[in-house]
Amino acid sequence: MIEAAMIWNEPNNKSHWNPELDPDWSIYADTVIRAGGAIQAVNPAITRVLGGMSPIDPHWLERMRKAGALDAVDVVAVHGFPLDWNLWPIHSWPDRIAEIEAVVPDKPIWATEVGVGSFGAEEVQVFGVDRTAELLIGRVPNVYWYSLFDLPQSWGAETRHREAEGSSYYRHFYMGLIREDGTPKLALDHYARHADKMGLMQWFHYQDPRLDDAVAWMKRLGVKKLRTGLSWADSFRPDALGWFDRQMEALQDFEVLVTFCFTPEHLGVEGHHTSCAKDPQQFADFCAWMIERYAPAQAVSGRLPAQA
C-alpha cells in the first residue's frame, strides 16, 4: 500500500517546523537519520524521501548533507507554488530543479507538491496546470499536483500563524481542482490530460468525510500516484488505527507516497504539531510501526494486518 515514505512535510518552512526550537535543523537531521534507518530496517524496498523543502533552498539542503541526513534517504523532494507563495516565476521551474541537482547529483529529485490556486481567477489555475505539466513531466521522475479538493473554509489551514499571514493564508483554501461544494473547477479537465503522469497530493484529515469521493474522482481521472499523510499526532486519537486502516485500504489501488509528520502536543518540545519531538526516536518508532502495518517486507497484496 506504500511505495515511498516522506520524513516530515516542509521542514524548512516555519509554518511546519518551528525554527526557534531547532535553529540549525540539527534536531530535524537527527530525526531523518533515525526515521530513515527505522523505515529501512522494516522494509528496505520502501523509497525514503527527505521532507519536501519549501522554499527550494540549496543552502538548506547542503546543511542536511553536512549533518548526514542525506545518507538516510533515497530521494530529495521539492515543493513549489510560483503563482501563489514563491517569489519566482513559474517558467523558472527547470532552474529550481537544477539548483538542487547541483547539491545532490547522486539522488533523484521529486516534485512532491506543486500547485496553482484559483484565488485570483480559475483561468490562472488552468494556465498553471498546463504550464507545470509542460515544465516538469519528464524533467523529474515524479510530480504531485496539490490538490484535488479545496480545503473547507471551516477547517483552517495547518500553519503556525494562520490569519496573521494575510492573503497568503487565504490562498490555502483555493488550491484544489474541485470546490468545497464538490463541483469541478475549469482546471480539472486540464489536469485530467496529465493524470496518468502527474500524481495528486491530497491530505486527509482524521475521519475525513471526503475519502470515498476522493478515491472515486481519482479513479475517474486515471490517477496512478498519490501523496498523502499519516499523522503521528492523530495516532493518539480514539480509534486511530481504525481510521488509518480505512484510509490505507481505500487507497490501495494507487502508488502511495505517505508523509509522516505532525508532533503530538504531549511529545513535543513545545505543545504544537510543528514542534520537534523531545525524543526523535519516538517519531522513528511511529514511522517503523506504520511501515510494518501497511508495507511490511512480506506484504500480502490486498490484505491489511489484523487490528493490533
Rank of each mutant, 00 (worst) to 15 (best):
M1S: 09
M1P: 04
A4P: 02
A5G: 10
M6K: 05
N9G: 08
N12C: 10
S15D: 10
W17F: 12
P19V: 06
P23F: 15
D24H: 14
W25Q: 12
T31N: 07
A35S: 15
A38Q: 13
Q40C: 09
A45T: 14
I46D: 06
T47E: 15
L50N: 10
G51F: 12
G51R: 10
S54R: 14
I56M: 15
I56Y: 15
D57Y: 13
W60P: 00
E62N: 08
R65Q: 13
K66H: 14
D74P: 06
V75C: 14
F81G: 01
F81Q: 10
L83H: 03
W85E: 00
I90H: 07
D95Y: 12
I97H: 02
A98E: 15
E99L: 15
E101T: 07
A102T: 08
V103R: 13
V103N: 09
V103G: 11
P105T: 10
D106I: 01
K107E: 13
W110V: 08
A111P: 04
G115L: 10
G117H: 00
G120W: 01
V124P: 00
V124M: 03
Q125K: 00
I137K: 05
I137G: 01
G138P: 04
R139G: 01
R139Q: 12
R139V: 00
V140W: 02
F149M: 08
D150S: 08
Q153H: 09
W155T: 03
W155R: 03
G156A: 08
E163Y: 05
S167H: 07
S168V: 04
Y169M: 04
R171M: 08
H172W: 14
Y174D: 00
G176R: 00
L177T: 01
E180D: 11
E180W: 05
T183F: 11
A187C: 02
L188P: 00
L188F: 02
Y191H: 02
M198E: 11
G199V: 03
Q202S: 08
W203Y: 13
D208R: 00
V215K: 04
W217T: 01
W217S: 01
M218R: 05
K225R: 13
K225M: 05
L230K: 09
S231I: 05
S231T: 11
W232P: 03
W232H: 08
A233L: 06
D234Y: 10
G242Q: 12
W243Y: 12
F244A: 12
D245A: 01
E249Q: 09
Q252T: 07
V258F: 13
F260M: 15
F262I: 06
F262D: 11
G271W: 03
G271F: 09
H273Y: 13
H273V: 09
K278M: 07
Q282R: 15
A284K: 09
F286D: 09
W289N: 03
I291M: 13
E292V: 00
Y294F: 12
Y294K: 01
A295Q: 08
A295T: 06
A297H: 04
Q307E: 11
Q307A: 14
Q307T: 07
Q307G: 03
